[in-house]
């Protein structure tokens, strides 16, 4: 997983900013993607390229339960979000979709917008190709990996039934 960083160091980037409710009358990822991050950065959708990575501070994705937040980012071809930590519903939604939510302390202070990052999910490491630095993170919990390996929560549930 490799892409350029978009750094939003603020805490509590909420789902209303990630995908405003005025666009929740659809749930196609391509449609939602047109408004990804609109209320925090209206230019984001113009700059984002496939594989790019969002970097944030504490409590990313707080607020509503809308899974549309994950779908909007994935629709915009974002490959992962790395933050100090995540709000719980966003985190569940992310895992359930097999969309990486990586917890790495102070990442927003180490990385700058435009840095090229490479993530190794298995090893739990992020390489900053631009700055020639490596950061480690705690690999995801086993159950999360199981759900992701099954292809998402529904596949996991179906296989068990």
């Amino acid at each position: 997983m490799r892409g350029r960083a978009h750094v939003y160091p603020r805490a509590h980037i909420n789902t209303d900013e990630i995908i405003p409710a005025r666009y929740l009358n659809v749930h196609s990822e391509a449609e939602l993607a047109k408004h990804a991050m609109e209320d925090i950065d209206a230019e984001f959708v113009k700059r984002v390229q496939p594989g790019d990575i969002i970097i944030a501070g504490d409590d990313f994705g707080c607020g509503s339960s809308r899974e549309h937040a994950v779908w909007a980012l994935r629709g915009a071809k974002v490959s992962a979000v790395i933050a100090n930590n995540f709000a719980r519903i966003y985190f569940r939604n992310s895992i359930n979709n097999g969309f990486p939510a990586i917890e790495c302390q102070d990442i927003a202070q180490k990385v700058q917008t435009g840095d090229e990052l490479e993530i190794d999910l298995k090893a739990g490491s992020i390489t900053n190709v631009t700055r020639k630095e490596t950061y480690t993170f705690v690999p995801m919990a086993d159950f999360a990996v199981e759900i992701m390996q099954a292809g998402g929560l529904l596949e996991y549930v179906k296989a068990k039934a």
Binding site: S64, S65, E67, N93, N96
Partner: peptide, 24 residues
């Protein structure tokens, strides 16, 4: 819906979930 936690006023455990969890 994230405000599903409201029902805890009745001594129940209640929590908001997203659409995939809801489907499951």
């Amino acid at each position: 819906d994230s405000h599903t936690c409201t029902y805890g006023a009745f001594g129940a455990f209640s929590a908001g979930i997203g659409s995939t969890d809801l489907a499951a």
